[in-house]
Simulated scan of single mutants.
Amino acid sequence: MESKGRRKPPSAIALLLVVLVVSLLAIPAVAYLGFSGSDDQAQEGVEETALDSEVSTTSPALVGSDYSEFVENSTGSQVSFYQISDGSRSGTATERFARPALSLSKLYIAAYVLDNGTTEEGYEAISMISSSDDRTATELYAAYPESIDSIADEYNLLSTRSGQQWGYSVTSTYDVVSFLAQLMEEDPTDPILVAMAGASSVAADGYDQDFGTAVLPGVLGSKWGWSDDRSLHSSVSFGENFIVAAAVTGSADDLTELVEFQLTDEVEQAIDEGEELS
C-alpha cells in the first residue's frame, strides 16, 4: 500500500542526514566555545576587580604630617637642657629623635588620668609616678589607651606616640623636657611634679631610683626609666630654674656619667642665675 504522503527521493534524504549530522556535531562545539568565552570574560572581570581593589586600597602619602619628620633611634644618646628663667635650651643633635619612652611614658598617662579619670585613679596615677609601678601603668593604660597620644597632641610633643602597650611607646628627651616645662609654667606644684619630688628610692620592681639626672645639684624631683633587660636607661629631673633629661643605650652608671659630663656646668649656671633673680 502506498503512503498517503509523498515519498522524498533518496538524494534528498541523504542531504537531510548530512545536515543533521553536521548540526549535531556543531552543538557541542558551540557549547564549548560559548563556555570558553564566558570563562574568559569572567576571568577578565576578576582581574579588573582585583586591580580596582588594589588601586582603591592604596593610601596616598601623608602630606605635611608632623610625624613624618621623626627619626627612629633607640641606640644613640640624648641629652636636653632647659633654663626656666630665660627659656634657653641646649641639647645633643639627637634630642628630638623618637626612642623607647620606657617608664617616662607614665608621666603622660598620669597627666591624662588626672584630667579625665576618677579620683581613685588619680591617686593611683600619682603613686605610679613615685614608685614607677608597672602594674598600675598597665591598668590605667588599658582603661585609657588614648592617654599618651592625647597628651602628645595637647602639649605639642612631636616625637611622642603610643604603642600597643605603654611599654612600647616612644618619646624624646626634648619632648619630656618640654612637657615638664609647660607643667611648671601652669602650676609649679602640679601633682605630677610633686609625685616626682616624692619619688621612692626603690621602684616597685626593686630597682634603685638614684641614677642619671637625679645626681645633679639642685634637683627637686625626678622620674626614671629602664628596659626589662637593663640595656636602656633614661631619666628626667627638674630644679627651681632648670629641667634636664637624658637617655642612653647602656647601664644606669653609663647614664649618670653622661649626665655629669654634659650637664653639670649648665645646671650650676642655671642655679646661680636663678639665685641672682630671686
Rank of each mutant, 00 (worst) to 15 (best):
D134F: 01
V215L: 11
D228R: 08
Y144P: 03
D115R: 14
T118L: 03
D208L: 14
D115I: 09
N156F: 14
E121H: 08
N156G: 13
S131C: 06
T160R: 02
V215P: 14
V215H: 12
L107T: 02
V215I: 13
E146Y: 08
S147A: 12
G212S: 04
T118V: 04
A125N: 00
A142W: 10
S150E: 11
A125S: 01
D210H: 10
T136V: 10
A204T: 12
P188C: 01
P217M: 03
R230P: 14
I126M: 07
V194Q: 09
D208G: 11
L180E: 03
G206E: 07
D229P: 15
S130G: 12
E120G: 09
V194R: 08
S201T: 12
P188M: 02
A214I: 15
D210S: 12
V170D: 10
F211V: 06
S150L: 08
E186K: 06
A137M: 06
I192P: 01
G122I: 00
A125V: 01
F211M: 07
P188Q: 02
D208N: 13
R135Q: 15
T119W: 13
D134K: 03
L180S: 05
Q209N: 11
E146Q: 11
V177N: 05
M184Y: 07
Y141G: 13
W166I: 06
I126K: 06
V177G: 09
A142G: 12
I192F: 01
I126G: 04
S200P: 03
D229H: 15
A110Y: 03
E124H: 12
L183P: 11
L157A: 05
D187K: 03
L183M: 14
S169T: 04
D210P: 09
Y168V: 14
L193P: 02
S150I: 08
S150F: 10
E120H: 10
D205G: 07
T138Q: 01
G167N: 02
D229F: 15
F179Y: 01
S227Y: 03
W226E: 11
T189Q: 09
S222Y: 11
T173C: 13
A143T: 08
T119N: 14
E124A: 13
I126F: 02
G167E: 04
D228L: 10
Y168K: 14
I129L: 13
F179R: 00
E139F: 09
R230M: 15
S227A: 08
D153T: 14
T160I: 02
V176G: 09
T118S: 08
L193A: 01
V176A: 10
S178F: 08
S130H: 08
Q209C: 09
I151S: 06
A203S: 15
P145G: 02
S130Q: 14
I129C: 14
S132F: 04
L114W: 00
Y207L: 02
A195S: 03
A197F: 09
Y174R: 15
P188K: 00
I109H: 04
N116E: 11
P145K: 01
Q182E: 15
E146R: 07
G117V: 10
D134P: 00
P217L: 02
T119G: 12
D134I: 03
